[in-house]
Amino acid sequence: MTPVPTSPGGTARSRVRGGPAVPHPRARPRSRGAAAWTPWLYLAPALVVLGALLVYPVGQLGLISLLEYTQAQVSGGEPTSFRGVGNYAELFADAQFWQVLLATVGFAAACVVSTLAVGCALAVLLTRVRAVPRLALMLAALGAWATPAVTGSTVWLLLFDPDFGPVNRVLGLGDHSWTYGRYSAFFLVLLEVVWCSFPFVMVTVYAGIRAVPSEVLEAAALDGASQWRIWRSVLAPMLRPILVVVTIQSIIWDFKVFTQIYVMTGGGGIAGQNLVLNVYAYQKAFAASEYSLGSAIGVVMLVILLAITLVYLRLLRAQGEEL
């Protein structure tokens, strides 16, 4: 497939041995006569695709959020009319919205932290075992990752079912219901979310650790540093570019979690106690084709996530990390 020697990790590792082991703080600017339009040429295909299929729809989203736009308008049954910030006012006036927003932020934060913790811990574990257990764990994780979300949620629900599930039997919990209490239901969903999203973190971070020059780790080990210290002061800083990507992705995914909540808590839990923003948007807007309200919720989500991402990147930059 490739004409290049592919001794695993060969290129990356050999380069690092010769080069600086610590990430270089600044990518070198390139001018050397490169025509200014060259990067744009390279970017052109991506920009065309993203412009047409992402920027344009997102722009439409903003526009729709200011209109009265339901299926009746879409089908041409009724004229489209301008509502200004009416949809936003409607949204912000709904006490439930704020409650749901708070729950979403809390739940997403818990999911992100747990996923990253489990993923990173297992990545470190992977580096300390031989091929067979490693392959076993890797395949199990990949299987979890590949399972369609709706099936994964159903299976977890079956496993924790008070009447028919094996988990209560093994734990001796009798017919304890996991989905009745608010936090217990959130916890169950969190388990499933972690189950299906940690593999992404684990595989990525594991690959990152493999690329760290072994001398660095050996030196640290000789100093008698504990596993936690090695992670904290050697690995984590070196893995930062990878951790940035997985963290941002996890935030985005977990903030938008839908299927797991929808399936596992029966559309938002007992009396709506487990609603998160995406499920709320579905119930309030999309199921009834209230696209303008749904778009307003979408814009709000976009703003929140963008703010979180920017703050996060700003923090990184403060630590000398360059995008």
Binding site: T6, P8, G9, G10, T11, A12, R13, R15, V16, P20, P23, H24, A27, V203, T204, Y206, A207, G208, I209, R210, A211, V212, M238, L239, P241, I242, V245
Partner: peptide, 11 residues
């Protein structure tokens, strides 16, 4: 995948 992803860590 495993050998490949490692490259992402380098500056």
């Amino acid at each position: 995948l495993v050998s490949g992803l490692g490259g992402a860590v380098k500056e």
